[in-house]
Design a protein around this nucleic acid. Structure first.
Lengths: 157, 157
DNA sequence: CGCATGTACTTGCCCCGTCAAGCAACTACT
DNA sequence: AGTAGTTGCTTGACGGGGCAAGTACATGCG
């Protein structure tokens, strides 16, 4: 690989267009989906996402740090989200048995109900805004590429 | 198309994986690129982007609302960004000749220089984090899909 | 055992961007 | 021309999330 030489070449027209369109989507899509589920289900994406992950976890509970990682926000951000969720009664904090420093965020029955109410609108919104536009495409191939993107970002360059 | 029936079907496994991986990328990628150019060039993405658009505009100037639209943020958000840029001397506000209510944000020479300093790192970062992972893919097809996503988001549903 | 180092979470401070409201200037209608 | 309504931008209040520092517990090493 002719390393550095190559990274200072401008992007091709196709690459450029791709980058710009993706930038646009990265800003607009979350806002659109968030607006939909806030309007239709009264639950912002920032709260929907952790509820979803919790509902899939064994025992409907996860350590704070796991949950933060799953939702791709920092632990400190997750502290605040869980505080909000706890106030509304969707989640409870329980001390972690194996590690005195750790806490589990556990989904309550009320939280699960709330999630189930919001789920159809979330699904519809994601279909409408995103999935439907990728009909003829090889999603698996795309997903692999995205996975590489997501993992490469951990080591800054 | 069997419309509504379909939108309440759960996603297929491929769709689900795609949505989740994209969500991850949408959060992580901007942070990664931002961190890179802040570290290497001292310019956050939120300021790089408007400078870039201005540099490409005729006369290196754009109306506030155009610039906001180009950067996919609200006009009020752009007011604040431009205020920051102005303080640093990269941009000047000039009254719009044709419309007394309007203002142009104009890139200064210093701003252009600043942008040119940051550009290589931006380019390298975008290549490293994003473009390089899409080597064998049909970017044009992808870009078209993304464009549909971006435009569909304007009409909420 | 006792101290140094490391890890899990929380909190304070701050940046960024949104929304709603306000102001100025343009447009249309009479 | 005068007034009503609209548009372009700014401002105030606010929420979300990041980073760095603080706290509480855990672990390793003398």
């Amino acid at each position: 690989m002719p390393s550095d030489q190559q990274s200072s070449q401008p992007l091709t027209a196709s690459e450029e267009a791709f980058v710009r369109e993706l930038s646009r989507v990265m800003l607009a899509l979350p806002r659109a989906v968030d607006a939909d589920i806030v309007r239709e289900a009264g639950l912002p994406l920032s709260e929907y996402t952790p509820l979803m992950h919790l509902s899939e976890a064994p025992g409907r509970a996860m350590r704070m740090s796991e949950l933060a990682a799953a939702c791709n926000i920092t632990l400190s951000g997750m502290t605040r989200v869980v505080t909000r969720l706890e106030k509304q009664g969707w989640v409870e904090r329980t001390k972690c048995a194996e590690d005195g420093r750790g806490w589990n965020a556990a989904l309550t029955d009320a939280g699960l109900t709330r999630l189930e109410q919001a789920w159809p609108e979330f699904l519809a919104s994601v279909r409408r805004h995103l999935v439907d536009h990728f009909k003829g495409q090889d999603l698996n191939q795309l997903t692999v590429a995205l996975r590489h993107v997501a993992t490469s970002e951990n080591q800054p360059g």
